[in-house]
């Protein structure tokens, strides 16, 4: 059987593994709130609501910390900020990811690493 696009499952697995680091990366430049993160992640999130369980887990693992604050207009927001361990986990993943990506590219696209 020939696939017209990549098998759905592989993409799902890739998203699953990388999404949390994309979320952490968005917080590198400062604190963010959920809706704002989702907007920025675009196609990387399929069901937008699933970002909230993910953020809750990142907080439980101590990679981010949160504060509820009033916004200038509209409802109060839960803001997320990277912690030191969060920054560490992100940096470590970036190194791993680059290596992984290069290896996959080398095999998949026939490039020489």
């Amino acid at each position: 059987m020939r696939y017209m696009v990549a098998p759905r499952n592989a993409l799902t697995q890739l998203r699953r593994g990388t999404l949390e680091y994309c979320v952490l990366a968005l917080m590198r430049t400062g604190e963010r709130y959920g809706f704002d993160l989702i907007r920025e992640l675009g196609d990387l999130v399929t069901s937008e609501g699933t970002i909230y369980p993910l953020l809750a887990r990142l907080r439980r693992e101590g990679l981010v910390e949160t504060t509820w604050r009033e916004s200038e207009a509209g409802p109060p927001r839960r803001y997320y900020r990277l912690t030191e361990p969060g920054r560490g986990a992100l940096d470590a993943f970036v190194v791993d990811w680059e290596r992984f990506r290069d290896s996959v590219d080398a095999v998949l696209l026939g490039r020489q690493g």
């Binding site: 699953r16 593994g17 949390e20 399929t46 069901s47 937008e48 609501g49 699933t50 970002i51 909230y52 369980p53 993910l54 809750a56 887990r57």
Partner: peptide, 19 residues
Amino acid sequence: ERLGTPEEIVAGYEDTQGR
């Protein structure tokens, strides 16, 4: 609709890298 079904969202708690 974009949020996803309640079941999809709740599954997000069990959905990460075999944790």
